[in-house]
């Protein structure tokens, strides 16, 4: 009887140790999966870049483009559109709504932007292309979206986009649309101009910002 109990006790200790080891291993798996959750973000970006999943466009330089052949047998229509997101009091539109080009050919268009506010404001344009599959083939050599744009009160600016649609574009594609969403990069400023969401993180009742209204 005593032996049996002793055995039982020893067996229990062995078990406890085994349980601890297993629990630690499982905790490690948990941590790894937490890391994996985070890793999904760069993985997704990499996949999007490769496959154009979310219409994020590529970037290239003039030399690479110059080395590419122009496919004169095909014509593709490229449309341009833009939206100044609420919170950025700017007028924003393409000066050319659409053009036709041959794949491989470098073209330039201009967007017009005007600051309607009475103070300096900085914005960031985010490009997106549809159909999404064309995004890897839509390459920008120069773009106002590469950097932030700061406009003085009332300033008007014509901003260029120089781009190429490479010849690897799927044969079925006839129309590509390039769209820009222009965001106010400063959250408080965006709030002041009625931006309701994207630039709104620190929104709390405590910081009182009854800013003078624009022009006030």
């Amino acid at each position: 009887m005593a032996d049996a109990m002793h055995d039982g006790k020893r067996q229990q200790d062995v078990r406890t140790a085994a349980n601890r080891r297993l629990a630690l291993k499982l905790a490690a798996v948990t941590l790894a999966m937490f890391g994996f959750g985070y890793a999904l973000s760069p993985m997704y970006d990499a996949m999007c870049k490769a496959l154009g999943i979310n219409g994020k466009t590529g970037r290239t330089d003039a030399q690479t483009v110059a080395a590419q052949p122009v496919d004169v047998t095909r014509t593709v229509t490229v449309e341009f559109t833009g939206l100044a997101i609420s919170g950025l009091p700017w007028e924003f539109k393409p000066l050319v709504k659409k053009l036709e080009l041959h794949p491989g050919e470098t073209r330039e268009v201009k967007y017009l932007v005007r600051n309607l506010a009475k103070e300096e404001i900085t914005g960031q344009a985010i490009p997106s292309v549809t159909p999404g599959e064309t995004a890897p083939h839509f390459k920008k050599i120069e773009c106002f979206c590469f950097t932030r744009q700061t406009l003085k009160p009332g300033e008007t600016r014509e901003m260029p986009v120089r781009f190429v649609v490479d010849a690897g574009l799927d044969k079925g594609v006839q129309t590509i649309t390039l769209s820009y969403s222009f965001f106010n990069i400063d959250k408080l400023s965006a709030q002041k101009y009625g931006g309701t969401s994207l630039a709104q993180a620190g929104e709390h009742a405590d910081h009182d910002h009854v800013h003078p209204a624009p022009g006030g």
Binding site: A32, G37, Y38, L40, F183
Partner: peptide, 24 residues
């Protein structure tokens, strides 16, 4: 844990200026 990751990213997007889910 993957949900925990997503929720954490949401919290940092809300308060610590990250842009995991913010197109801007």
């Amino acid at each position: 844990p993957v949900l925990a990751g997503a929720v954490t990213m949401l919290i940092t997007d809300r308060h610590f200026g990250t842009h995991f889910f913010d197109a801007a």
